[in-house]
């Protein structure tokens, strides 16, 4: 019963244990009480009730007023990052491209203006670098998750 989930810090491997009819991990125990509801006994003895639901490959978990998203990864898959790429956070329209291929940009510099839900969103450079690719032009529609442009970090 081993599963791998992705996290911002890299893949997390989870191996569930069995403890007197309950599943166990890191000193915490949980049992299913029906319809996506679980009773959790934390390592310190606190008992909580939580919910899980799966959407696509993502497990959504609600527990103790917190919500977590854990994306399931096939065993052995890489973290699948998007190095240097800038991703459309929402479906929307490109209002303005503020840079050209070959431009040197600084971290925090505005690169593109998107419009989604009637609000403008500025796409800013995550780090210093050079624009190597621009995938969209003014007026283009973009899907959520589309790679907008690419920046190569400047080598020292």
């Amino acid at each position: 019963m081993q599963h791998t989930f992705s996290s911002p810090d890299g893949p997390i491997e989870v191996t569930l244990g069995k403890d007197d009819g309950a599943f166990a991990l890191a000193g915490h125990r949980a049992i299913l009480i029906g319809d996506g509801r679980l009773r959790v006994t934390l390592g310190d003895g606190r008992i909580m009730f939580g919910h899980v639901a799966k959407v696509g490959d993502v497990w959504w978990v609600a527990l103790g007023g917190h919500t977590y998203r854990w994306e399931r990864m096939e065993a052995g898959a890489s973290a699948g990052g998007n190095e240097g790429g800038l991703i459309a956070p929402m479906p929307g329209k490109v209002l303005q491209v503020l840079v050209k291929v070959g431009h040197t940009v600084e971290a925090g510099q505005a690169l593109m203006v998107l419009e989604a839900m009637k609000m403008e969103h500025r796409i800013v450079a995550p780090s210093d670098g050079i624009v190597t690719m621009i995938h969209f032009a003014d007026g283009d529609q973009v899907e959520q998750g589309a790679s907008l442009l690419e920046i190569e970090a400047e080598s020292e």
Binding site: M1, V14, K54
Partner: peptide, 11 residues
């Protein structure tokens, strides 16, 4: 514990 729950959901 949330990881435990996600893994249980999967299992």
């Amino acid at each position: 514990a949330s990881l435990l729950m996600a893994a249980m959901g999967e299992t």
